[in-house]
Each structure stands twice: as C-alpha cells, then as structure tokens.
Design a protein around this nucleic acid. Structure first.
Lengths: 181, 181
DNA sequence: GACATTTCTTTCACGTGTAAAACACTTGCT
DNA sequence: AGCAAGTGTTTTACACGTGAAAGAAATGTC
C-alpha cells in the first residue's frame, strides 16, 4: 500500500503531513512489527469527522441548535412527511431515549409538533412547524457552502474518486453489523 | 461545483448504495436547487467514523476501557515518554477537565502513575504502569486486525489513493496551506 | 374474554463531557 | 521584595446520552 506517487505527498515517509501521519509514525517507531497501514485511512477518517463536526457546530449553535437536534429536524425536512419517534431514532442513528428528550425541547421551542395516531395510541407522529422548516432551510445552505469550500482543495474528479472509495468502505461497514472478536 | 463524476458507479442516480446515498437523494428531492455534492463525501466520512468507532468500542469495553481512555493510554504508549495532563489533552484533542477525570480513574485502576515535577510544582508527569502498557499492547493488534479486515474490500492501490485523498482533505481542515504541489 | 407477548415510547439513575471559575504555582515588572 | 499577569491543573455546575426498566397500548392465543 505504499504508493510512491511523486509530489502529492504520500505520508508514508518522514514528511510532517498532517496530525495523523505523525501519530502513525510514532506507533511505527514503538511497534515496528505491527502493520500501521490501516491507521492512515481510519485515523484520517476519524480526525476529519471530528474537525468537520467541530467546524459545522459553530453555525448551528448560532442558530440555537445542537448537531443532534439539527439531524432530527433534518430528517423530518428531507423525508418531507411526519415521522414517529422510533423512526426518527433509526433515521438519526440515536437511541429512543435521546430522541424523546430532544423532541421535548424542540416542541417547547415550537420547532416541531406532535400528534397522536388515531388507530394506535402508542405511537406519536412528529412534524416540523413552519418555524422549524424555516430554521432548517436557513441553516442548510451555509453548511453546504462550508463543505464545498473545504472540498474545493480537490478537483471534481478527485471528489468523485473520494466519494466512490468512501462509498465502498461504507457499504462494507453497513453490510457487516458484526464486531471483531 | 458540479456533482462528482466517476466510472465506478457514482451514486448520483437511483441506486440504493449506502445509507448516505439515500439521504442525499432525499435532500435533492426536497431542495433540487442546492448542490448536494459535498454530502456524498462528508456524509460518508461522518457515517464511516461513527460505524468504525461503534465497532471498535466493543473490544475496548471488553478490556474495560472506553475509547477516550484508550486514546489517552495510547498517547502515552506511542510517544514513549511521560506526558503532562496538558500535553495529554492536546494529544488526544480533549479538554483539560476531561483528562483530569480520566487520569483519576486510570490511576485508581493502576494503569497510570503520576509524579510531580520537581522544578515547577504546578505540573504533573504521567506515565504508563506495566499493567497499562500491557493493556494497550494487548488491545492494539486486535484493533488493527479489524481495521485491516474492513479495508480488505479495497486493494492496495485503492487504499493508497484513499489515504492520500483523505490526507489532502485533512491537511486543509487542519489549516495547512494546501499540500505543496 | 382474559392472559401473555410484543411494540412503541417515556422515565430513571448514572456516567461522562464541557465551560467557567477556582486553585496553585511561576514569571516578569517596577 | 512585592505584586500583577500568566500558566498548568483541578473543581464545580450542568447538560446530554445511555441502558434498563417502566408504562401504555396493540396483537396473538387458548
């Protein structure tokens, strides 16, 4: 996996590169026997995710939302229809308990409305209020603009390549719910 | 910024693909005006990170560690020398307060030892105990093996490409002026 | 028609992270 | 020396997520 591609800086060597490269170098120095190859990818995915979230959280705070709250509102916005708390939990990959708490707050703030199912009185149906929809639609373009800016370091074909490679990795991760033994 | 083009099945169409592809399709249906291209990358990075962490947390729990605890021990292990709480905070990208709490627990469990600086009595120096080092060294290979397995869906050159692309993205996120080229 | 089972949601107790303040000590200034 | 400002670490108050149990209602079974 060591691909000596000229000047785009494959960080397998002593170049400072990014934070992850440094960490990998440290591990290799201490454990020369271990294959640290995977770290170059997975360490970077984790670090990118952390930095991206940190950067995108600031505008959300300004709009008075936490990221989990935005994800919940976003799920309602993009599906276009009402969702039950359970569906929201699945859609946002969070626990039912967390969704319950968020819904309480979002309802109090008037961003979301609840309605009981007439047939099955266990389930609730949640929908965006006008204010909720406006809030999501107001914040989303800024988020995308930031993402576009960050990605502008990569040209269109690099972006396509990256999306495709990540897609393959993700497909594998989502296809195998099993954990390592 | 145009949507990514690619020959390897760009998920810009109606292919189910992964979870992210579905979400992007939903957004496009509701907001046809917005450029959803960045989501294909950033959404996948976030989702991959979440799934990877979830998968790798299970073995850690079995070893009695949370991920932040493992990161702290790992920082001590890979640097090979003592670190102060402040350095540990920077190294693990977490707050000083969080490090203080973790150190308290890890010290009680005998995985870490503290020593006061003789010159500057504000600072403490933290080092791994033998048990702590053994714990890290016992867990690490399993983590790497899992990562290797997950990445085995990509051949060596794909992995190199992915690492390089993520490196460029990360460099930008970390505030580097684009990698020399 | 009552009873166990399943499904959907909420509540509870608890652990953990955070920001801000407090603390402890050092350094620089006059 | 004395004191303000700076630095490293811990404490405090609080918000949030989680798993487990509880609660509430539907469904299946005999």
């Amino acid at each position: 996996m060591t691909a000596p591609h000229g000047r785009t800086g494959t960080p397998t060597d002593a170049t400072p590169g990014d934070t992850v490269a440094k960490v990998v170098r440290q591990w290799r120095a201490v454990h020369p026997d271990l294959d640290t190859g995977p770290m170059e990818i997975i360490g970077r995915i984790n670090r990118c995710a952390a930095l991206l979230q940190q950067a995108e959280d600031a505008p959300l705070r300004r709009a008075g939302l936490s990221r989990p709250e935005f994800d919940l509102l976003g799920a309602l916005r993009r599906t276009g229809h009402e969702l039950t708390p359970g569906e929201l939990a699945r859609e946002t990959f969070s626990s039912g308990a967390a969704v319950t708490k968020r819904l309480k707050q979002l309802t109090e703030r008037g961003l979301v409305e609840r309605r009981g199912d007439t047939r099955d009185r266990r389930v609730a149906h949640v929908r965006l209020t006008d204010a909720g929809r406006a809030l999501v639609d107001g914040v989303l373009p800024g988020q995308l603009a930031y993402e576009t800016a960050v990605l502008s370091g990569l040209d269109a074909s690099d972006q396509g390549e990256l999306a495709a490679l990540l897609g393959r990795l993700l497909a594998r991760l989502e296809g195998r719910p099993g954990v390592p033994g």
